[in-house]
Amino acid sequence: MSATLPPQTVQAMLPAPAPVCFVTESGKAAEAPADYPAPSDELLREAYRRMVVGRRYDEQATALAKQGRLAVYPSSRGQEACQIGAALALREHDWLVPTYRDSVAVHARGVDPVQVLTLLRGDWHCGYDPAATRVAPQCTPLATQLLHATGMADGMRRKGEDGVVLALVGDGGTSEGDFHEALNFAAVFRAPVVFLVQNNQYAISVPLARQTAAPALAYKGIGYGVHAEQVDGNDVMAVLAVMTAAVDHARRGDGPVLVEAQTYRVEPHTDSDDPSRYRDEEETLRWAAADPVRRLETYLRDREVLTERDVETAQAEGEAVAADVRGRIDLDQTPDPLALFDHVYAEPTPQLLEQRDQLAAEMKERED
């Protein structure tokens, strides 16, 4: 005989019927959600600074891709509230598990901005040390990182650590089997992991309506016994409130949380994409009116929490980061083909060493 959960327990797992919102698209205060305390003004000012810097960094990386100095770059312009809100919700010893579109979030966790772009330049699989930064390598295959995040979180739980793993994924990734397997495993083993779905409305060219018939992606959580919430992903105040609560929930040992952030990909899928083939300009302009950076700036200025000097300082920092990236990304790299065999295993296998020796011999013949 199966157990029947109390109605209040089931209700608590369901997301709010409408995305949680603190600040309207025009930058005015919305009716405060009863379930979430408002983030402090100090935290909001820090979020604003990081969003401004993150946007400038994203713009610079986009320009580098167009100039051919990056192999590809998937912009996250318009998703800064999701990226920064996620990064700020974590403690230093927590882990961030990003996708290929989360360069701004990775940089916000303290990773060197040029090292973030190493993968996208094609120099190496990952340009930074995941163990030192507590940031997993950016993942290109859809949703495979969610299984890694869940296993990592379960390992932390088994070792008695109080860390939390925050796994980022797009709406397209929720259509993958890995998404379902990760949520099911996380729920059964009560792994301290938070899944943040950045629903930017398109999986490359496939709109959300062609991906799911659910009223919202957050409703998928109840099927696995996972607490879920949906949030206005362009309202960083709401993202901070919801993500902080979700991380605290997981850290207490209460199990995983699924959060869906409603946002929008303003730029093309990558610099090689033509979004005019599958969406119209009017739609993009409607979402541009909900710009997360402008929304927060208006809200903080109206409350006299943010000054003109604060805005100028953030913009100057963004320009400094962009200039630093431009200067260092041009430094010539001399690739070593033999480095392909490094870090495959902690101890190289005989077969790997044999392959390395074969390549070394071929390279020496060519030199001679």
Rank of each mutant, 00 (worst) to 15 (best):
G160L: 00
A289R: 12
G85C: 04
A153W: 07
M156N: 13
P7N: 09
E176W: 03
A288H: 14
A182W: 00
I222R: 14
D235Y: 05
A241T: 01
F22I: 07
L217C: 09
G27D: 01
T212L: 07
A339W: 14
E176V: 11
R49E: 10
T334F: 14
P39I: 06
D248P: 09
A186G: 10
W95L: 06
H269G: 07
V53W: 09
A290N: 13
N200I: 00
D254F: 10
Y128P: 05
K220M: 05
A16M: 12
R294W: 01
S103A: 14
R158L: 13
Y73R: 00
F179S: 01
Y128Q: 06
L258M: 11
G172K: 03
R303W: 04
Q355H: 15
G151S: 10
Q355R: 15
V169T: 01
F22L: 02
P19C: 08
H269K: 01
V114D: 08
L300N: 00
Q201F: 05
Y345P: 02
G160H: 06
G173Y: 01
S103F: 07
L142F: 04
A182C: 12
V259A: 04
P6C: 09
Y278P: 06
P130D: 02
G223D: 11
G223Y: 04
Q115W: 10
Q351L: 15
R286I: 13
T270L: 05
G68W: 13
N234V: 08
G221S: 04
L168W: 02
Y128A: 00
G170N: 04
V23M: 02
A314E: 02
S76F: 00
S103P: 09
F341H: 03
A191C: 10
L359Y: 13
G127C: 05
V321E: 03
E267H: 08
V293S: 07
E25V: 12
V266H: 11
Y299Q: 01
A30S: 11
R301F: 05
R56P: 02
A153T: 01
R55N: 04
E181L: 05
M1D: 14
L300Y: 00
